[in-house]
Design a protein around this nucleic acid. Sequence first.
RNA 1: GUCCCCGUAGUUCAAUGGAUAGAACACUAGCCUUCUAAGCUGGAUAUCGAGGUCCGAUUCCUCGCGGGGACACCA
Length: 563
Amino acid sequence: MIKTKIENYLGKAVGNDIKIEVFVPENEQFGHYSTSVALKLAKELKKPSMEIAEEIKTALSYGIAKKYFKKIEVAAPGFINFWISEKVLKNEFENIYKLNGKWGKNKNKIKKNVVIDYCGVNIAKPMSVGHLRSTIIGQALYNIFKFKGYKVIGDNHLGDWGKQFGVLIAAYKEARKNKKLKDISLDNLMELYVNYTARMKNNLELGDIAKEEIKKLQSGDGENLRIWKKFHNITFKELKNIFNLLDVEFDYQLGESFYNQMLKDVVSEALRKKIAVKSEGAMVIFIEGDEIPFIIQKSDGAYLYATTDIATVKYRVKKFRADSILYVVGNEQTFHLSQLFNAVRKMGIVKNQELAHIKFGLILNEDMKKLSTRAGKHISLESLLKEAIIRAKKIIEEKNPNLNLKEKEKIAKIVGIGAVKYNDLSQNRQSDIAFNWDKMLNFEGNSGPYLQYTYARLKSILRKSDFKKFDSKYLNKKIEMDLILKLEEFSSVIEKITINYFPHYLADYLFGLAKLTNSFYQSSPVLKAEKGIKEARLALIKAVAETLKTGLNLLGIKAPEKM
RNA sequence: GUCCCCGUAGUUCAAUGGAUAGAACACUAGCCUUCUAAGCUGGAUAUCGAGGUCCGAUUCCUCGCGGGGACACCA
């Protein structure tokens, strides 16, 4: 990596243990790479930053470093700007080319177990667009960590044991009594749920029935358990389709019910360690600085999701030997998770392990109000994905009618889903997203299909010519050097994401790469270039194509050969 | 009321404390008998307000305004 190489050179030249950071400036008049290390040293050394910068520049103008750079400039108020020599760039390109899309991937395993908690759908409720974010952000992080050589465990923490099952079972039994049930689907269940909840407001008796049903379920009542399993099956049947469409996979799908047996011990452990106390009849853990305690057992003896969450952490640390647990969960759970993290540390369940809340914004209505599943106003994820595929198909029909039907369908799926995923992954996960069909299904400009289209066109060129060897000495245009520099960035972008957990850096990078590439082959013919140049350009295009494909796949997006 | 997050172009989004704040959409002027026009090349427009720290602030701190979220037995 050029960046680390410069950092090493600088480290030697500076001879100080200050953290050296090299970045790619936005404007190339400031070099291929740049550093502000002299500015940072100025205060410590009590010397003008320009003077320090000049000294560093001089130190780098001897020996091997001299050959590495084409030019080094010092710019006010103390930046040092680097231009890499073309020979180095060409060498670098040949290395990238040889790795054939695997570049940026760590060959060595990193001995760190990363557990990623994502998706977290609820049983007996249709998956909504809100779950989309967790699922695709989580999957992208999963892919990226794996690519970097970490041991990754993906766990879909299903919501399958909550209070809502009391309502669901009550509503189900009621409907069954009225013989309104035939083939029950997830939508039917949702209807029953919404209907029952609405009536509960004016009819307290219904609420009591629901409470009774949940108590029965949790104490192992046979019939309620059977009904609960039925809900499970109905949900999974539909989830399977969505997971297929989204191309997500989990190593584990341990729901809340899985931890049910452990809850009692969690509470007694907390009490034994004198972390939990009784307050207002409930068992709670007080967290310094929080007005409201973390409740782990209700006054009626029932456990809560807080209890389950503690059990889950414990399980992950013990069984998965987690060094790091990443919770890909919405912003609205910030308070709960910070309490959880504090609680498990207090209890000694977690010591040096990392617990991180990979938070993301809500998907809001156009009027910036929360999309609520409870109010029944949900937008089902499946309908969104299907709509995306339909729109993609229409465009394919228009743009590329010669493809056969099977191909069209396959591509429509790849492109439609890609558009939806990219739309999400290209944004900073922390901000709220205004739900907007046209934007989410955008097929132009900074979009998934734009990247896929670029890839397909590159592949189309590559299909038309085969080449065995190339010589990078034929790459001399400025845009070719720019492309090599851009390719070079890939691996540091991936690296960055394993530190800050922001997949949109990758999306942003890929868009930049695709844009530059489109611009390149618009102005520089590949197949019609003269011998020598042609092969070198084909190699360049191939490296870009492989990088695009790898990058898209890391985001969970497929790259079609044709579109 | 307390706490957390957010406020960037008409719209939707970028910007590890860095240099002239980037894109995309929309609008607009061009480019298909050269590799797929889902493309390429141009054009106009923005940091909520007031202070502060810093060589340098969209970013950090304080206050105000506006939006969202969470806040004892829901998940």
